[in-house]
């Protein structure tokens, strides 16, 4: 409780900067990023990003393509580590712990922060094995029955169980695009993460599948902290409680979603929302 109180206090401090209205969400802070920069070789991709991400809410990153929103998302679970020549500066804290602390194990971090990618990427294995993959490598199940339960409940949470319960042993690549993406969500859930990062999860899907995923995100919000990158402002408006606008590697504006869309402070944000840049 003390820790939480501390967080709230911290949030209140940032409120005074008037730049940060996230206190309005009345949520404790889960992730706080300060002055995050990213270089790919000689090229700088992010310039001093500072943002707080609230617990059990959906935060969306919007902005024109190439603005750095995905790059920042990939900093949160250190996926940039896998790219040769990428350097990350500044601090990102999860529950007050610096995730770029050399003593921190990236494996453990990624178990706590799951990720869903732009293009559905089920492994070329059965549906069951896809979901069981995470629990297996992390040793989360003590027995086969345990594992079965994790798989079933993850598929349920991802709203996919009813559709695939009779063909758990068929390859995951045989599902439709929307089903594949929900399978990937189930796969991420199975590890029991606290935060789920979603990198334009609907960009490869048709409107109906998109609607199903959006509904799912809204349900998952109850139990998970969700960060979603999207190029669709409507989507950001529909699913997120907090929105951050990125442009040319800089965080231009952030705040409660309604405020951003109805009352943007910055001209660039206005222009983007009105469709003048993008």
């Amino acid at each position: 409780m003390d820790m939480l109180a501390g967080k709230v206090k911290l949030t209140q401090q940032s409120v005074t900067s008037a730049m940060n209205p996230s206190a309005a969400l009345d949520r404790p802070i889960r992730i706080e990023a300060r002055d995050v920069t990213v270089h790919y070789g000689a090229k700088q991709a992010l310039f001093g990003i500072s943002i707080d991400i609230p617990d059990r809410a959906v935060t969306s990153f919007i902005g024109p393509s190439g603005c750095g929103k995905s790059t920042f998302l990939r900093c949160i679970n250190r996926m940039n580590d896998t790219i040769e020549g990428a350097r990350v500066g500044g601090t990102i804290k999860l529950d007050g712990e610096d995730i770029y602390d050399p003593a921190l194990d990236v494996v453990e971090l990624r178990a706590r922060i799951g990720m869903v990618f732009q293009k559905p990427n089920p492994f070329p294995k059965s549906i069951y094995e896809n979901v069981a993959y995470g629990p297996r490598i992390h040793g989360l199940a003590r027995s086969k029955a345990d594992l079965d339960e994790i798989v079933v409940s993850s598929l349920r949470k991802a709203g996919l169980f009813e559709e695939v319960k009779d063909r758990l042993n068929e390859p995951g690549t045989g599902l439709s695009g929307g089903q594949q993406q929900r399978l990937c969500i189930a796969r991420a859930i199975a590890v029991g993460p606290e935060v789920i990062l979603m990198d334009e999860p609907c960009s490869a899907l048709d409107p109906i599948a998109t609607a199903i995923i959006e509904e799912l995100i809204d349900e998952l919000r109850e139990n998970y902290t969700i960060v979603i990158v999207t190029h669709s402002m409507q989507q950001a408006a529909r699913v997120s409680q907090k929105t951050a606008f990125f442009h040319l590697g800089k965080l231009i504006e952030e705040g409660v979603t309604e405020d951003i869309f109805t009352n943007p402070v910055h001209k660039q944000t206005q222009d983007y929302i009105m469709g003048r840049i993008g």
């Binding site: 679970n77 996926m79 896998t82 990236v106 494996v107 453990e108 971090l109 990624r110 178990a111 799951g114 990720m115 869903v116 990618f117 293009k119 990427n121 089920p122 492994f123 070329p124 993959y133 995470g134 490598i137 992390h138 990937c184 796969r187 991420a188 590890v191």
Partner: peptide
């Protein structure tokens, strides 16, 4: 093998 498959696995915390 597409990079997305590898990313998917890393994203789940696989070594």
């Amino acid at each position: 093998v597409p990079r997305t498959l590898r990313d998917g696995s890393y994203g789940l915390g696989a070594t």
